[in-house]
Structure formats: C-alpha cells, structure tokens
C-alpha cells in the first residue's frame, strides 16, 4: 500500500518529561492521522502538550514511546519535507528578507534561489521587500516572511505553532484569509497549533481538541463548511459552540445575545 505524500501519522504516542526528578506525563496514547493535503488545527488550553506534539512531528523531540510517521516512515529528525512557522517569526536579524527566505535553499544555485525567493515573496504579498531587514517590518509582515521561508524549501507538510498568536486582532483575521489563500494555492498539508477556536474553524478541515494533564486527544470535529467561511453564519457558530463545550465554556443562554 502506498501512502500519499504529505501524510503524517501518530500511533500510540506517549511522552514524559522529567521534572524535579519525577516523570511528568505530557502526552498520553495519541493516535491520529493527518491526511495529505488537509488543513488540520490542534486546539487546547496551554499545557496540553500540543506544542510538544508539533515538535515531535517536526523532529526536534525524538525521545518518546510510540510512533510518529511521515509518508509511512519513522521521523528521526528535522527534514526539509516539513516546514515550520513558529509563533515568533524567528527571522535572522542580520539577513535581509530575501536571504531569510533563502535560508533553506543553500544547495541551490544563485539564479534558482532568486527565482524561488521572488516567487514566495510574491505568494505572501511582499514582492518589494527582498532587501529590507526584518527590523523594518511589522509583526504581520515578518510572519509572512517566515511563512515564505517555510514554504520555499517545498515541504510536503507545513507545521505552524500558533503562527498568528503574536499579532493584533485585525491583522490576525487578515492573515487567516491569507493563510487560506496560500493553502489553497500550495495544496500541501498544513497542521496548525492554536488556542483560537474561531481561527481553527475558519481554516481547518478538522479541528483536533486536546485536553491537558496528561495531554490526550479528546475529540476530533469535522468542519464541513464551504470556503471562504462566514464567521457569523449559524453553522459556523454551531461548530464553535460544539468545540467550546469541550472546554466547558459554552454560554448557557446563547440566544440571549442574539436578541
């Protein structure tokens, strides 16, 4: 059986850290398949191990029980088939925007590099900023450069750890639209960790809900809404209520607000 490129599987995965000499379980028996080409969000309160799970998928954490497989093969470390966008843009301040985007393209010739950099800066809407320095960009722009850098090495899967978490509310909503556009264009798998339920519903095919201590997958909710999605639609609201219920945050009289 061949597996479509861009598939990520987590099988019976558990992970503990040693804190003050005692093992503290972070993830407990996680089983999930991220199918190729899907946009999937992982939501959960802080401390539920969602970032640790992402780091395992990225290959930065290799000590755990169970299996993490990409295209059917065990993840043994970071690789260029997975891109990452961190919450902080993590651009290198001594490199220009263009040089930052080319960070994973070391092996290519100058001409090919330039082509890919231009293409990806255009994709994120920053064509004129090749020779700017990160310090000259706003938070949203810097994060877009980080997305361009992650996509430039043509990953099968883009992992994102609260990529819009540091942005203001309006920039954030705009960037959600941009992310959707980029995902539709690139047609690769995207896995996003977030604590913003609305953001998760707006972007994802499925929302994975995790709960903490130890981190387990509580529920996986499908989002079968057509795109682009209307945050104010009743179907959207219904899914939001369903997810919030898992966090015991649902409003008791939801219609009181509608009047």
């Amino acid at each position: 059986m061949s597996i479509e490129k861009g598939t990520l599987e987590i099988k019976a995965l558990s992970k503990s850290f040693i804190v003050d000499g005692n093992p503290l379980q972070i993830l407990n028996n996680i089983n999930i398949v991220f199918p190729a080409g899907a946009f999937i969000s992982i939501v959960g309160s802080s401390g539920c191990g969602k970032t640790t799970l992402l780091r395992i998928m990225l290959g930065l954490e290799t000590q755990y029980e169970g299996d993490a497989l990409i295209d059917g093969e065990k993840i043994v470390g970071p690789g260029l088939n997975r891109g990452i966008v961190f919450q902080d843009h993590r651009l290198l301040p001594w490199l220009t925007v263009g040089e930052n985007v080319a960070f994973g393209l070391e092996k290519l010739k100058r001409k090919e590099k330039k082509l890919i950099v231009d293409e990806h800066l255009k994709l994120v809407g920053l064509s004129g900023f090749v020779s700017a320095y990160p310090s000259q960009l706003s938070g949203g722009m810097a994060q877009r450069v980080a997305i361009a850098r992650a996509l430039a090495s043509k990953p099968e899967i883009l992992l994102m750890d609260e990529p819009l978490g540091a942005l203001d509310a309006l920039t954030r909503m705009y960037m959600q639209k941009e992310l959707e556009r980029i995902w539709l264009f690139e047609k690769i798998s995207m896995i996003m960790v977030t604590h913003d339920v609305e953001e998760a519903i707006y972007l994802s095919d499925k929302v994975v809900i995790m709960s903490s201590r130890p981190g387990i997958i509580k529920k996986i909710i499908d989002v079968p809404l057509p795109r682009p999605r209307d945050r104010a639609s009743s179907a959207f609201m219904q899914i939001k209520a369903e997810i919030l219920k898992e966090f015991h945050l649902e409003t008791e009289y939801p219609f009181a607000y509608a009047i």
Partner: peptide
C-alpha cells in the same frame, strides 16, 4: 531559538 532554526534546516 536560532539554534533550533539551524537544526530544523
């Protein structure tokens, strides 16, 4: 963070 970035790439 920068060290991690190097590892990722």
């Amino acid at each position: 963070e920068y060290i991690e970035l190097g590892a990722v790439y």
